Simulated assay, not measured.
Amino acid sequence: MRFTVTDADTAAALGSGSLPVLGTPRLLAWCEAATCAAIEPVLAEGATSVGTRVSVEHLLASAVGQEVEVTASSVYADGRLHRFTVAARHLGGNGKVVASGEVTRVVVDAERFLSRL
C-alpha cells in the first residue's frame, strides 16, 4: 500500500509528539491496513480479522509530502491465527526503511464478535 504523509498524519497532529513528521500511531495504522489487505483474500464470508499484537520499530522520520510504501507478508498461519511481517519504506530516490516489525491478527466471525460486546 502507498501513502503520502499529510499534516493530519504528523506526530504533532496526532498528539504523539510535537514535530511535523509522520506520527507512529499513523504508521501503525498503515501497517495494520496492509495486514488487513493481505488477509482479506482468505477470509470466509462473514469473517473478519482483529489485530491482537503489534511489534514495530519506527526507524526513520518522514516529512510531510513524503511517499511511503507499506508491505505485509504472511509468515505464519495456524487456523485462525495469522502473523505478518510488515515494512515501510520511503518511495522515490532513497528507498530507506522507515519501519519494520510484526503484526498478529486473529480471524473471527464478525457478527458473533460484535454480539459479545
Rank of each mutant, 00 (worst) to 15 (best):
A38K: 05
T24H: 01
L22M: 09
H90R: 04
E32A: 08
L43N: 07
G46S: 09
E102K: 02
T6D: 13
A87E: 15
G101F: 08
Q66K: 05
R80V: 02
A61I: 02
F113W: 13
A77S: 11
V5N: 01
I39P: 06
D9Q: 08
D109P: 08
V70W: 05
A61F: 03
L81R: 15
E67T: 14
R80M: 02
R83K: 12
R105D: 08
L81I: 11
A38W: 06
F84Q: 04
A63Q: 12
F113R: 12
V5G: 00
E69R: 15
V68H: 01
R26L: 03
R26A: 14
A13L: 11
C31Q: 03
A110P: 04
L60I: 07
S74L: 15
T35C: 08
F84S: 05
G17P: 00
A37K: 06
L43P: 12
E69A: 15
R105W: 05
S55A: 14
T48L: 01
L27S: 07
A110D: 06
P41I: 04
R105Q: 11
A87M: 14
A87F: 09
E67K: 14
Y76D: 15
N94W: 08
D7P: 06
A87N: 13
F113D: 11
L60G: 04
E40A: 15
P41V: 04
V54A: 07
E57V: 06
T6C: 10
R83D: 06
K96L: 11
E102M: 12
L43T: 11
V107T: 10
S73C: 11
